[in-house]
Amino acid sequence: MSFGQQPPPQPQWAPAPQPPVPPRPGWARKRIAIPAAGVLLLVGVGIGAAGGEDGSSKTATAKATVTVTATPAELAADEPAPEVTVTETVTSKPTKKAEPKVATIPGDGTFVVGTDIKAGTYKSAGPADSVIPNCYWARLKSTSGDFDDIITNNNASGPTTVTISASDGAFQTTGCKEWKKVS
């Protein structure tokens, strides 16, 4: 190639044409929508079966009206069809608030009064077998963890007794043997 001549043209490579993408068939969307609808239905049934949010005792009354019309074979040719109205009243049984079922408290944890444990007087044999021979307990206003929530507390080295009031928010215990309700 001499000066002033242009180089020969280079071939241009273009990508191969792609066929158009067909739209997703309707059944592909249904594979997702139908199970999702089933899950939402089950969640709704579960919420409905659970009842009220606060778990309080409520009585529900429902009335249903049913209208029954006689068939043409049961009627004479010149009689109008009689209507029978039946009213049915359905009353559901009241639900009870869940009561704590245990009369003991394990040696470690924070327990909500009225939900996890019942109010009353509890006794522990003292510290559990551990490196630190102390049994710490505290009656609390709430479970926020604030220092001001402590109503009263103790760090016992032997058997101990505590009375938990119904107005207490929670009871905290660490390093103690099991607490048994005595009254």
Rank of each mutant, 00 (worst) to 15 (best):
F171R: 04
T65P: 05
D129H: 10
N154Q: 08
K97Q: 09
I47E: 04
V86Y: 00
A28K: 01
N153R: 02
G38Y: 02
V21Q: 10
D146C: 02
I151P: 08
T91G: 08
P100E: 14
V68M: 12
P82N: 04
D148I: 05
D149R: 09
A170D: 04
T121A: 04
P127R: 08
A14G: 14
W13A: 15
P20R: 03
E74C: 13
A16R: 07
F171L: 08
Q6Y: 13
L75W: 09
T61F: 05
C135E: 07
P80Y: 00
P72C: 07
P8K: 12
K141C: 14
G109Y: 01
T69M: 12
L40A: 13
A77T: 02
P15S: 15
G109K: 03
I151A: 02
G169K: 11
K97Y: 05
V131W: 11
C135L: 02
E88F: 08
E99F: 05
S57I: 05
S92N: 11
K180P: 00
V112W: 00
P35E: 14
V113Q: 10
C176Q: 00
A49Q: 00
G109N: 04
W137G: 02
V84F: 13
G52W: 15
P25V: 05
P15A: 06
A81P: 12
A166K: 12
P94I: 02
W13Q: 07
G51E: 05
Q6V: 13
S183I: 00
I151T: 02
G145M: 09
I117R: 15
A28M: 09
P19W: 02
I34F: 10
A37S: 09
G109V: 01
G109W: 03
A36V: 10
P159G: 01
T67D: 11
A156H: 11
D168N: 03
A166M: 10
T152P: 01
V162F: 07
I34A: 06
V102M: 00
F147D: 08
Q6T: 15
T174H: 12
W27S: 03
A50I: 03
G52H: 07
S183L: 04
L41A: 05
A76N: 09
G120I: 12
T67G: 15
Q12W: 14
A156D: 10
C135A: 12
K177S: 01
R31K: 09
E83G: 08
G175Q: 12
P22F: 06
A119R: 10
D108E: 06
V66N: 06
S92Y: 06
T89G: 01
G120D: 02
E74T: 13
A76Y: 01
A64E: 05
V112T: 10
G52D: 07
E178W: 00
A33E: 13
A14N: 10
T69G: 15
V90D: 06
